[in-house]
Design a protein around this nucleic acid. Structure first.
Lengths: 109, 109
DNA sequence: AGGAGGGTTCGAAGTTTATCGAACCTTTCT
DNA sequence: AGAAAGGTTCGATAAACTTCGAACCCTCCT
């Protein structure tokens, strides 16, 4: 457990918990490819290199963009790890701001 | 209470409950203007003519389009009433398909 | 019948979002 | 140091979504 606040994620900008916007979160989750990523993070952090996209043919810049949208919405955290990146769900922030939302989305279907 | 199934909404096409797609629902809800409409329907049906949009300046064709996106996603029902239309949330269908989702969205903020 | 109130649909134009390749940056390995 | 692995960012193009006005449809009212 870190002592640092939720937003202390080096290198890339992460919105603060209080800045999260419901519509932006919903939009981030409204793409099947991005939703799939979120499901992969359900049980814990995953290294980006090990995160398989729905469409395995996409360019790496596109892959990066998918994570960017999720990160900027506050859905995921993206921190450096080794020469790659570690992705995780911002469950804590999401559950406080939008109680029940993430659970409902993850449990759907 | 109607004996007819959920989808028997005259005139305009409504998706069947089993056809609802989570990502489509999330997208429909991801626009502030559309989300606001959903909130107005929280406590019961509203006639379209009485439904005030966030931006009161929009053309009527645009207003109609907002409802169309919500209807096609299965979020709302839109049935004829007199010379106008009656709008209502498809709570039943949404709650069965995506338990907790609507509640979480409505309670947020 | 004719008109007005309320909405939908269509096509065009404007605005976002997605996707890609190229260039660049960091960390690890040799 | 140099090279490779793993990602981000930028600029351009393609695809999707939004918005509007015009045309059209119904229903109620006179």
């Amino acid at each position: 457990m870190s002592i640092l606040p939720d937003t202390a994620s080096p290198d890339l900008a992460h919105p603060q918990e209080q800045e999260l916007q419901l519509t932006q979160v919903l939009f981030a989750l409204s793409d099947p490819g991005r939703l799939d990523i979120v499901r992969q993070l359900r049980d814990g952090p995953v290294e980006m290199a090990n995160c398989n996209l729905m469409d395995p043919e996409v360019a790496k810049s596109t892959k990066s963009h998918l994570f960017k949208v999720l990160r900027e919405a506050g859905v995921i955290r993206n921190i450096p790890k080794g020469r790659g990146r570690l992705l995780s769900l911002r469950r804590d922030a999401l559950d406080r701001r939008f109680p029940g939302l993430l659970e409902a989305v993850l449990n759907a279907n």
